[in-house]
Every structure is written in structure tokens, then in C-alpha cells.
Design a protein around this nucleic acid. Structure first.
Lengths: 149, 149
DNA sequence: GATGAAACTCCATAATT
DNA sequence: AATTATGGAGTTTCATC
């Protein structure tokens, strides 16, 4: 991935529906040349897809928070993944170093909804206890990664 | 935002470069009808843009972590935002309830890079101390939100 | 190897019904 | 909201460097 590829990815990060001709004019390539590079980046896995950026608040998901998970001994990352993927409210989850075993980002419609999700997650068999914080202001959200699943 | 809008957003979330005709065929609308709804959702702020989904690892951003920020008294969310937006490594940042004042998500090329970023952020005038964890496995990443800034 | 030009197909978009 | 019409975009082909 060279500098030209990076500029193309950067352009797509700002507006994924921009035309290849438009991007080409910016980086100094023809439309087919841009498309070929995008196709290659997709094939290589550097680009995993294109998605829409939504405003959670505008969709009625006004309450956001992070839940730290303290799991039972011998809980595999895979079982955490399987347990959490059933919740549509879970936006992201990662196993982490430190005291907690995982950090889970949750979007809920309101506080009651958040509390309900928190209680259900805390009640999962692999979860021993949780510690959660609420987001006050989302200051910055820059890019998207990973798969849609 | 009714059920039809949600299905359109869902389709765009999976592939933001799909044609309106294609999406229309799925939800039972003509291409112009889909476009009108997308335009309206953008005007209303429910859709804030379209972006590319990248694989951080494929781009060489192999190291991910969360940094909790404990700020000086009277630090405004806006000054945190201004301070952090200069770091390309910062993917997201939010002010939160609890002991810490903000949670910052950082992508770095490797551990040395992460450490360098951490030290620079910890050295920001509004930062009193930090507490950080490293991501072991990203289990789930579901959707994108907010503005590119 | 990667590129640009051309050709062809399909899409986006505006106007009309 | 569907249909129609048109300018523009996506995509393939091919010649070129």
C-alpha cells in the first residue's frame, strides 16, 4: 500500500460514494486506475467494505456507554464473542489487558434501555461482574473498521 | 424514520456503494424513491455520510488500545477535542462518567508507536494522568457513527 | 507491471405523470 | 411514488508506456 493508495482510502473515508473520476482528479489518476486500486485493496483485505455513517442520537440511540467485563476463569474470547453478538445494542467489543477481561461499547435508546442491556449482559453465564461508564459527549469518531457482522 | 428507512440504512450499512436501484429492488421501491429517502435522511442528520471500512491490521495499525484521561480541573470537552484531534492515531474519544474524564481509542502501528502516542497525550497540558489498556482481540465492530473530523 | 482512452452498460438525477 | 429521459458514472477492453 503506497502513498497513492493511502490518498484514495483517505478520499473514500471522507465520502465513500464519491466517483472514481472525482477521486482520480484529486490524486492524479484516471477513473479506471482508481477503480483498479480500490479493487486490489479490497482483494487484499485492506478495504473490507463501504458503510454509512449514522448519527445514533438521530436514530433514537441517545445513550452510550462502555461496559467492562470481568469474566469467569477460562472464558475464551470466542465465547464472549458468541455471547455478545446476540445483542443489537453492542457496537463493539474487545478483550483487553488490565483488570477487566473485555471492554464492550453499547448504544441504547435511553437510560432504562441501557440498564436493561447492562443487566442482561451482567447475567450472562460467562460474566462474573461488570463495571460501566456512561458517555457524556462523543468528541471524536474517526473511522470504521472490521466487518459488518 | 420508519421501517422502510431502516431497511435502506441497513442496506447502506452493509454496502454504501450499492446502487439505489439495487436497494430499491430489495425494499420494494424505485431508485428515485430510495434516493429521495436517503437525501431526506441526510438532511435530517440521521445519515451523516458514507465511509470506507478498513482493516487496521492490513494497513499496519496492529496495536490498539484505550486510554483513560484524567484531566485538570475545569478542562472543557472542547479543549479535549481540540487537543486530541491533532493525533491521527486517535480513532475515537468521549467524555465519560466515573473516575476518568474521557476514554480515547488509539490505533498505532506497533507497541513502540503506541507508547510514543501515549506519552505525547499524557504530556498534553490538560492531562493530569492516564490509565491505558491494550486490546488483545477485537471481537466485534458493528457500525460507524459521527462525523469524519 | 500499471496506465489512459474509448466503448458500453448501468446508474443518478431531474422532470413528468 | 413510478416512469421516463438524459447526462454522468462504473466497468470492460485494448493499446501504450
Amino acid at each position: 500500500m503506497n502513498e497513492l493508495d493511502q490518498r484514495i482510502v483517505h478520499a473514500l473515508a471522507e465520502d465513500a460514494r464519491r466517483s472514481y473520476a472525482d477521486i482520480g482528479a484529486e490524486v492524479g489518476l484516471s477513473a479506471p486506475a482508481v477503480k483498479r486500486r480500490v479493487d486490489r485493496l479490497r482483494a487484499e483485505g485492506a478495504i473490507t467494505g463501504f458503510t454509512v455513517r449514522v448519527d445514533p442520537a438521530a436514530l433514537g440511540w441517545e445513550t452510550e456507554g462502555f461496559i467492562e467485563l470481568f469474566c469467569r476463569r477460562n472464558t475464551s474470547p470466542d465465547s464472549i464473542h458468541r455471547g455478545l453478538s446476540r445483542y443489537p445494542e453492542v457496537a463493539s467489543a474487545s478483550t483487553v489487558t488490565g483488570e477487566a477481561d473485555a471492554i464492550v461499547q453499547v448504544f441504547a435508546s435511553d437510560m432504562r434501555h441501557f440498564e436493561r442491556v447492562l443487566e442482561r449482559i451482567a447475567g450472562e453465564p460467562f460474566v462474573e461482574r461488570t463495571k460501566s461508564v456512561l458517555v457524556l459527549s462523543p468528541l471524536l469518531r474517526r473511522f470504521s473498521s472490521g466487518s459488518p457482522g
